[in-house]
Design a protein around this nucleic acid. Structure first.
Lengths: 159, 159
DNA sequence: TTATTAGTTCTGCGCAAACAGAACCAAAAG
DNA sequence: CTTTTGGTTCTGTTTGCGCAGAACTAATAA
């Protein structure tokens, strides 16, 4: 079967934006290659791209591409679809997960609070200021966690 | 001047708790040594500890201790006090910064939103679903950022 | 059956982070 | 001036990450 691909290219602006976004995502704990793959799939005019395109557009080796994609798949930040008669997968960002992601973040805040409470439990009463500082903090964190659902709901209604 | 130090020791529970907290803080982007120093100063019954104690209690070399402490100082997560007639500094966690920290986090959320908007601006109109997904997201992020001050205020009143 | 496609897995390299230990240094004590 | 204290800075080692390139593999095509 002959290749009938349209050989798209990224503009300089797109490459630059990918670079910047990549940097931000790296700050969020992602490795460079996965970060760029994520950025690419947001910036590219095509929202679904096959393995080889990703590899080519980002100048990534097959192994780096494979590992990056699989990482993002297991972290649920990517998904793929196939097209009738084609074996290869088309990858795209899973964008409907950001609400879940947010919720998880707030769960993490709750766990933080729990940890500080554990610290507090084993502290001597001889350091009341310090202990109160800690208590204030956990209290605040709990407050945030508790109020979050309302914030979500408020937004959903507004839309 | 003779040494009249009380040679405190950490209990197994404390060491364990420090280890766990250290892990969590590392997850938050801190290196092991700074993470443990932070944890130590929260868990230790003494809220203020001098350099040498930190080094000893955590089995850290002087260089590691020095670097960890200075890192935490520049990031404003630690501060120190001196005591009359003593040259050495006593370090303690700067706990009054967590509100600021939180605010910064939400500023970061705002920047995220800005970045996604930039992506949106350069996207073709030919992918309306995708674009709407993005728009929803930025909208939500902005909503969070906007509502945050109210959440803060509500908590301050409640206390 | 052989060849091609669409990846995955293995091997090895380069680089930076994290730490130890030693040398170093400035301020205070003797 | 000499020594001690309270660190800081330098040097070297270890460790692990992130990637490339090559070897490999399972499905499809020819």
């Amino acid at each position: 079967m002959a290749k009938t691909e349209k050989v798209t290219q990224l503009t300089k602006d797109q490459l630059q934006l990918i670079e910047r976004m990549g940097g931000v995502l790296e700050g969020g704990g992602l490795a460079p290659a996965p970060a760029r793959v994520s950025a690419l799939l947001l910036v590219s005019h095509e929202t679904e791209l096959p393995f080889e395109e990703i590899s080519r557009l980002l100048n990534l080796s097959k192994s780096a591409t494979s590992n990056a994609i699989n990482l993002l798949l297991t972290f649920q930040r990517l998904e793929y679809v196939t097209r009738p008669g084609e074996r290869r997968r088309y990858f795209r960002v899973k964008m409907f997960n950001w609400k879940e992601d947010m919720k998880e973040k707030f769960v993490a805040v709750g766990q933080m609070s729990a940890m500080y409470k554990e610290v507090l439990r084993q502290r001597p009463k001889s350091t009341p200021e310090f202990n109160r500082g800690l208590a204030d903090m956990t209290d605040f964190l709990d407050h945030i966690v508790k109020e979050m659902p309302a914030l979500f709901k408020k937004w959903e209604q507004k839309s």
